[in-house]
């Protein structure tokens, strides 16, 4: 029996996972929690084999950060990141942390049970790329990695100086990136750019 822990704050998908796991003879639901805050504690002293981990969990806790910590302490536990947010950095961060598989709730065609089976069998399944989003005139694929990093910070509402300090860039560089993005998207103001970016889910600050 494969012991599974579900970390998902939204009732619908969580209940769906619980249902699927309960109905499957292969899997045993060990824990089902809503926030990633204490996820790694559960892994101590309990034989968790597989975790279905959401990224934007309750209380603003990041499932990705929890996954990074768990992979460091319990490398044998397999993790499948489960998210609906198309944030551009999630896939590469998950890969960097050593997370086995990655599943988009809405978009991935494969049913979650099949993915769990394949992952437990040793496969590592990731989508090719983060989904393409439209931002003004531009596609999310038109932005460079540095621009996206600046775009994420832009949604915080902080000043350019504060952003530059946080990212270890010069203020001029930050402003130049923003200017390029405004040009690509055709938005007239940075506020509009930030709002559109956040609403599309391309960048999510805090998780």
């Amino acid at each position: 029996m494969i012991n599974v822990m579900v970390v998902e704050d939204q009732a619908m998908p969580r209940q769906l996972f619980e249902l699927l796991i309960r109905q499957s003879p292969k899997y045993n639901l060990l824990f089902s929690i809503e926030t990633a805050a204490m996820a790694e504690v559960y892994c101590m002293k309990n034989p968790v084999d597989l975790i279905l981990m959401d990224i934007c969990t309750a209380m603003g806790e990041s499932g990705l950060e929890a996954a990074e910590r768990i992979k460091r302490q319990f490398p044998h536990i397999k993790i499948i990141i489960v998210t609906s947010m198309p944030e551009f950095s999630y896939i590469e961060r998950a890969k960097a942390a050593g997370v086995e598989s990655f599943w988009y709730k809405e978009i991935s065609k494969e049913p979650i049970l099949d993915l769990m089976d394949r992952t437990m069998a040793g496969e590592s399944i990731y989508p090719d790329r983060t989904p393409e989003l439209k931002l003004g005139r531009a596609s999310s694929y038109d932005f460079t990695a540095r621009e996206l990093i600046v775009l994420r910070e832009l949604t915080s509402g902080d000043s350019d100086t504060e952003i530059a300090q946080r990212l270890n860039m010069s203020v001029w560089t930050v402003r130049s990136h923003i200017r390029h993005m405004l040009g690509k998207t055709g938005f007239e103001s940075r506020t509009r750019l930030a709002v559109a970016a956040r609403e599309s889910g391309l960048v999510i600050l805090g998780y």
């Binding site: 929690i33 204490m38 002293k45 309750a58 209380m59």
Partner: peptide, 15 residues
């Protein structure tokens, strides 16, 4: 969601 419950439940899971 009760933050206290979250801590308590996790602690209980590890005894």
């Amino acid at each position: 969601l009760d933050p206290v419950r979250q801590i308590e439940d996790a602690a209980r899971a590890v005894g």
